[in-house]
Design a protein around this nucleic acid. Sequence first.
DNA 1: TGAACAATTGGTTGCGCAATCATTTTATGT
DNA 2: ACATAAAATGATTGCGCAACCAATTGTTCA
Lengths: 345, 345
Amino acid sequence: MANNDSHSGKRLTLKDVAAKADVSPITVSRVVNGYDGVRANVREKVEAAIAELGYIPNRSASVLASSKSKLIGVLIPSLSNVVFNDVLRGIYDIATPANYQVLLFNTHYSAAEEERAIRTLLGQSPEGLIITGGEQTTAAKAMLQASAVPVVQIMGEVDNPIDINVGFSHFDAGAAVAQLLLDKSYSKIGFIGARMDRRTCERLAGFEHVLSAANSLDKTRVITTPEPSSVSKGALLFRELMTITKGDCDAVFCCNDDLALGVLHESKKMQLKVPEKFGICGFNDIEMAAYAEPALSTVRVNRYNMGSKAMEVIFEKITSPGDKTTPIANYINTGFELVTRKSTR
Amino acid sequence: MANNDSHSGKRLTLKDVAAKADVSPITVSRVVNGYDGVRANVREKVEAAIAELGYIPNRSASVLASSKSKLIGVLIPSLSNVVFNDVLRGIYDIATPANYQVLLFNTHYSAAEEERAIRTLLGQSPEGLIITGGEQTTAAKAMLQASAVPVVQIMGEVDNPIDINVGFSHFDAGAAVAQLLLDKSYSKIGFIGARMDRRTCERLAGFEHVLSAANSLDKTRVITTPEPSSVSKGALLFRELMTITKGDCDAVFCCNDDLALGVLHESKKMQLKVPEKFGICGFNDIEMAAYAEPALSTVRVNRYNMGSKAMEVIFEKITSPGDKTTPIANYINTGFELVTRKSTR
DNA sequence: TGAACAATTGGTTGCGCAATCATTTTATGT
DNA sequence: ACATAAAATGATTGCGCAACCAATTGTTCA
């Protein structure tokens, strides 16, 4: 058991273990780092000493000496948004077994905070970075470029990827929803959006593109707020939509399921028949969507995959840094899928 | 702007900046770390050099030299559980402005994984640790004790806190729910639980304690699974409950709102009148609870507070390490609150 | 104007580890 | 048994920074 507090409070080092095991410090280092070239009896002796002293290697010293950090930096814009839970799970599930650590930063949808986080992160010699979207500041992009660290931009399709892009086209997804609603013979289709980050705007753009082509676009039916989304915000915005359009609206695409659930709730209070008189489509396919009454049509997205894929790509880059024979694709499309349930005809 | 890639790819150091600004490295260090005792003109000169070169300090070297890491380790058992989002937000909201980093580990409800994470974490000289619950292995507890790092155990009430405990009594919360249900004249009250970690078990224990005292406890009405909880699992377990009890059950306490939402959904399919014939109470008060139909009675918990309070306590400990005059309370009760809505009489 | 002091700046050193190369030990084959 | 190769182990050094103390510069007041 650990009893490293006995000697004057000084931190235990390789040297202490080496003295105990009667080998050189570097041999201890080799045991700790799992090198093969250590004879079994020596390794056992060292391991015994480590266990007895309760030695814990100093990562800072290790990183400084080897410039290998086993660290992956992850920047996400929000901790409240459930969407990132799944992404994070995907990241951790790949990173942790490979003995990599994840350093997570919340950028609060701010490019300035993001730049600060990148600067901090780059001071720790990360071996890879996973960042959300492509709206980094010029300075941030320059730092990333200069650092030569593998960078994966996730969630959306990015115009000029810094390095690699894992995500899907929100424009296409928005367009697909618009087409679905048109196909189901809705014609006065509105949009409700909150937060309005880049990806949400792209969803809206794709949506408007299709409606416009079908001559069904009326921008007064587009209700958005920069504030974060929630179920209650969905209800609120829906009331606004109905007021502004005087009820002249027969379907709505909500930029996420929370909002849609709020709309659904509110439409029941208004005694609007869903889906007959009014169609609702959400986005993300959170579990509750399937359990709403009526069950919510929505767009399913591979959130977990986005995270795990991003990590895998980083590992590929790390392991074969200069391998030009099998170049890594710089865009990996994780796709999306329309899920039609009972909230649309 | 940054153009640090020009010189032979070698990492920029304090020395490079010092040369450029024509001062000593240590002065640059002082500027970087925001010490007061640097004359304005010198500071500006140095800052200009930093900006021009795009210098980013090496954190490993800094930590090694100063043994100050500005690092807080956080161990949570699950990334899927939404509960931890709010806790994390609370932690980050306090830590980030203070320039502290958060290193997050997912222990997957495993004490062994937790021990591994603690070992890894302690190798990085964290200035504080936030861990979930009190079920650490003996070795883990010993390491923590020996490390002398402030440790906050969050979420539940812990028997022998390693250091500080921030949370509330799940036993009391479970008891309060049981009492509520009894007060509403339900008498055949069941329990549905998933995952069954320590805190869930305590909720159940409190619940059983009250029912037993009221002579209303029937353990066949307690349905649990070690698997993770979800809405669909709630529906599933509810069907099981109804089968096993042959419908002889008029209320249920679900160990979280997801499960309760599933029960609610299923009870509608069974045409059970809620709350007249059947009462449902959840736990956590997630946003959807208020928007369910009927709105879900549940227990509100200060998740965000648990996180922010934990961080605050750590900062107190860091800033006044030996201050024995104003000792920090070793248990901070964040409380809970019964929220009665329409799913109970 | 010049002490006397305070405020600022600099030099040296070591934090704990792994890379590199040198040395010793062991295995292999004849 | 011996040479040779191969494997295991060790000694030295530097990673980039901040602590510590010394040297310098600036400031204040008589």
